[in-house]
Nucleic acid binder design. Structure first.
Lengths: 236, 236
DNA sequence: CGGTACGTTGAGTCATATCAACCATAGTGG
DNA sequence: CCACTATGGTTGATATGACTCAACGTACCG
């Protein structure tokens, strides 16, 4: 199937299917977004926006996976989060009137809707439930960021890698054979955990020796969730 | 002066002086808060709330300093941020309808106003400028959290310590003799940087040898900002 | 078939954590 | 008033987790 044959998704359908933040909008508001938005498609490796860019709108992910990351001094990426269908990205910059503090790059070919900043601002003004929902979203992300800070500061790389694997299971799920439904390079894994690529490789093969996972290239099969939980030290 | 002699501060005055988030409220709204809020005082070491608590309102700091932190597995604190006059804390839990993901403890004796959650929620409904302002605040904090994640993941302890010192200068300022206007234990410093107490002590005395700082117990005198900037690798 | 990106492994190094001992200070209670 | 205790600060010795560097294997791609 060619990409260009895909019809532009309707937000109301999208909102219902994904339970996204649009579910509190009125019929008219959804129609307005449908009218104003721009449908875009990106392939693996493409950039949606870069750190430092002034952003004129935000993206709602319809399909695919995007990584959101910051670039450190020596050019090393730190992955902050992933965006998947139903998620929105770049809303932080739009709302705080700051330039983008992250970059966004496609991990799996994706279809997104680009919604102009003015729409977002006007919705906040006109629909307080929607504003509240956005606040919930931002505050929830803030809580996750705080947890992550504590983890990176206090846990070992081994513990964090186990935790990240479980987090990926939670966010992207497993297929019928228990393969993780997202495939990342070793370097990308390292850039989430906050370590060197070689360390991830070594630890993964340790996990393999301990029959916690099975490795087939980028495909990771999860064999022992309990074991990983034990290593990661999460009881929540 | 005894604490109990201090009059309850008025929010309108507070808002004007500190430029806090209340500046977008109407006369009536400020009056309502003044009527509904509860004035509280705490001494160093006291706890405002603990991780896991369900919180029934948020705090606006009138004077003093509060540390907001998470507790790791072995009981080690990770300080997330400090709250000073004009700042609000615990709003995250109130807005996201989640239990507190942090604890708050007094660093310097403080006076705070406790504002019931319903007030915050109703203001969001009735005053969209205020909602927008809260969104800006949350999104801004999110950006800072992201930066911090990248720092902890990529920088050395030495770089981070220098950076934290500069951040404290920025947030709390220096007195006429260039002494940092906040005094923390070595352990607290370590719990911001995300390292061991002993490491902070050793690095601080290195900084002292390099005439970047001067140490008088908990009082830290900043002698060479440029030098610290160089070490910390921040150009922003 | 060479090139490029990714994955893997080994060896050496270093920053940082850990453990232990010790000192200073202040508050407490008998 | 003094021993007692707790808390915080400092220093040294030692251990080690994790990074770096380097070499090499593998696979895909034009």
């Amino acid at each position: 199937m060619k990409l260009q044959e895909i019809p532009v998704p309707f937000c109301d359908k999208c909102a219902l299917e994904t339970g996204a933040i649009f579910r509190f909008l009125s019929r008219d508001e959804v129609d307005m977004i449908n009218f104003e938005k721009e449908f875009r498609q990106f392939k693996r490796g493409e950039i949606l926006y870069n750190e430092g860019n002034r952003i004129s709108g935000f993206y709602c992910i319809h399909s695919g996976i995007i990584k959101v990351f910051k670039t450190g001094l020596d050019g090393k990426e730190q992955i902050i989060r992933f965006a998947k269908p139903g998620d929105i990205i770049a809303y932080r910059s739009v709302l705080s009137s700051e330039v983008a503090c992250t970059s966004a790059k496609v991990i799996e070919d994706c279809q997104v809707c680009f919604i102009p900043a003015e729409i977002l601002i006007s919705l906040i003004k006109s629909n307080s439930s929607y504003a509240h929902e956005l606040l919930k979203l931002a505050c929830h992300e803030l809580g996750e960021a705080n947890s992550f800070i504590t983890d990176i500061a206090q846990k070992t790389v081994r513990e964090r890698l186990a935790e990240i694997l479980l987090l990926l299971v939670h966010d992207f799920g497993l297929d019928e054979q228990n393969y993780l439904q997202i495939s990342l390079t070793r370097e990308e894994l390292a850039n989430i955990v906050g370590t060197a690529t070689e360390s991830v490789i070594r630890l993964l093969s340790e996990f393999k020796s301990d029959t916690l996972v099975e490795l087939n290239g980028r495909k990771i099969r999860i064999l022992d969730m309990k074991g990983l939980e034990k290593i990661s030290n999460v009881f929540n």
